[in-house]
Design a protein around this nucleic acid. Sequence first.
DNA 1: CAATTCACG
DNA 2: ACGTACGTGAATTGA
Length: 887
Amino acid sequence: MADKRLLLIDGNSVTFKAFYALYTSLGRFTNSEGLHTNAIYGFNTMLETMLKNVDPTHVLVAFDAGKVTFRTKMYDNYKGGRAKTASELSEQFPYVKELLAARGIQTYELPNYEADDIIGTLAKQAEANGFTTTIVTGDRDLTQLANDHTTVAISKKGVSEIERYTPAYVKEKMGVTPEQIIDIKGLQGDNSDNYPGVTGVGPKRAVDLVGKYGSVEGIYENIDDITAKKLKEHLVADHDQALLAKKLATINRDAPVEKKVDDLVYEGPNREDLIAFYQRMDFRTFLNKMDFEGETPTATPGLKDIDYTVLTAENVAALPDFSADGCEFYLEMPDENYHTSEFVGFAIGDDDQWWVSRDVGLLQQAPLKDILTSADVAKQVFDAKRTYVGLNRLGLTLAGVDCDLLLCSYLLNTYDNSNDLGRVAMEHGYDQVATDEDIYGKGAKRAIPDDDEVFFKHLARKARAIEQLRPKLFEGLDENEQTQLYREIELPMSFVLARMEIAGITVDASELEAMGSKFTEQLAEIEQTIYQEAGEEFNIGSPKQLGHILFEKMGLPVIKKTKTGYSTAVGVLEKLAADAPIAENILRYRKIAKIQSTYVEGLLKVIHPEDQKVHTRYLQTLTQTGRLSSVDPNLQNIPVRSEEGRAIRKAFVPRHEGWQIFSSDYSQIELRVLAHMSHDSNMQEAFKEGQDIHAATARRIFKMAPDAEVTPNIRRQAKAVNFGIVYGISDFGLSQNIGISRKQAKNFIDTYFEEYPGVKAYTERMVQQAHELGYVETIAHRRRYLPDINSRNFNQRSFAERTAMNTPIQGSAADIIKIAMIRMEDAIKDMQATMLLQVHDELIFEAPAEEIATLAKLVPSVMDSAIDLEIPLKVESHYGPTWYNAK
DNA sequence: CAATTCACG
DNA sequence: ACGTACGTGAATTGA
């Protein structure tokens, strides 16, 4: 029989993984009966992905039958010492099985055996019967089953992310063949299953030994070849343990499984059962995903009906004026980019009375116009900046915004924020509004429904969601002491940003085009040189083809590998450049190609034909630290470090002839914030005395005499250490960055902490706070949750610890410049000067030449007085006829 | 749609 | 023993 595809799933392991992947959202995944549903939800997500990817003809989910197995008989402590399964998780297992029943998927468990053994046995049968098999699990042990017919898919951190282990991938990732995984475990044991291997042997040595001798048995046959004395002693002493460990790790492929693979035919779900199950679990997203052919989408499952009135030119005058209690307002622009999106409708109302229309022209008439532009009518919206820019394009200036639900939600938790109102609502436990994807679709199929009822109900539900959620989110802000952050920083900030975006910055297209033709010529030339050096033509832009040429054809030394092949990143090419001129040329080609495609061509594409400007969008609710980000185009990464790239800035010009570009930036704001937050007196002293902080650090960590000269190289190293501290240092990271040994790096860090004890205490305090409270905060009470801080995974935990140190610093710097920007608008309101851009620690303006002198005093004074720290802030300013010259 | 590379603070 | 610097966005290749 042709093409039989078997999907085997380790039910326990995947449910477990799903539970912890969605652990931080545990609170939101609760159905009306009070049952936790996060693991069930995650399991179902995984299932949908796998069913789609594998398109199986046969499926089975295997479960562990109980604690006692043939392995516990071999070794008492097998899986001993494990914490008891959380009740929030164990209560979900029966429902996972119910879900599988509704989906028409068989489950199986076998006393005395683990799910692994069932899977191993069935996979073996399947191989003999011509199946292609995919195994899904969260446990790497199962990769021992990978072969030409069987792939092992390991669910990674999320539930939808999957890593596929083929024999080749196992070899690459673990350095051994699938069959040798049991030998590895024999040597190193398994902590989570609680059995030891050979003392002193970890993953590295295990791979080494197995590589050399093939197997545990092979090692002992050649035990006398092993020269390392200690290692040999341990191997001899732990011989029995190693054999036992190997046995424990070996999956039994001949378990007495009663099922036959051919009986596992999968015919798809029982629709009614599945719908009923989803409804019981309150899985609205899954319900919505199901195809309800013939039924109108208004009957979106789980959504109750909503009343609305369609506004027209005739009845618009009858609208209430909302002056007493304010109103909710939602302006629908389907494209992400609100500077250019069409308008497709709006909703307004309050107190469960909703008015909707497709005709945004109505907004320009009384009474709507006055409602929206009056500061005295409180408006509740979702995404104030978007709404402001949209209305601005209709000739209205939005005023009187009280609640921006998107901003509130972002401040409460940056982690699962979204730009979709439906999603945000769901995150906060409100389910009476669909997501845009539900109603409009996605990708090529995305469209505004022609059906008025469908569309208008969606709009009305959005407005109602804002009304319903506002009190809850405001209360949340209050509890977090974030009301001031919201009222005095983020909400006013959104309007400042809106006006900067609308102002835009003028870009000289002819300048860019001239640069472009020059680059095109240069690229053609370098390209030919590279082809000659390579001896053939190939796509230089393809890392894969380039890797082939450099490392296979030309035989250059492989310095670093990536997941998929050879790394050809800058660092690698720089090392190669010493012996291979081609590397130098590739670097130069890459640099110019990057400038050409991203900046010359990229910017030309987004210059507005009417005003010769680019209008970026600042994303105010995206970063985890409180910084802004900039898109369409990104104006926060215009080249500056290399001269060729920097030339791009010549195309950024003032909007009037004779005007200037003026720029001010905070000098070392993050280190100053650190000096403030850590109260470290040595670091504070350096700033108070106006010293060069990197030089001061150099003197300290290198214990230099007061009169000794700080050479550029020493200063560079000290600078790297300062940066490292801000990023949440590790000896490894630092050693990589400045090319020293890890030991030396550790020395630097230790000395640094001795010299700046307050900084050491700060880093410890932040990590501790993250452990105790689950989050860290900036000066303005911006919050970042760090759920991974208690992770058992070293990597995740370490990352969370570094973030705990870095976020208050980076985030407080973001707070400060935001405050400065809000005050800046006011400070320059009577001038012609306009604030155009923010680049994290830098503000860029355009102004007539005669205002430059005033700006040069005013801007730094507003910036350095934005906040009162224990040390002074320092601001530097530059100006010139283009952005390039403002340096 | 993920991976790689490279631009910025 | 683990295996990393913090925060972003855009272009390109190649499944």
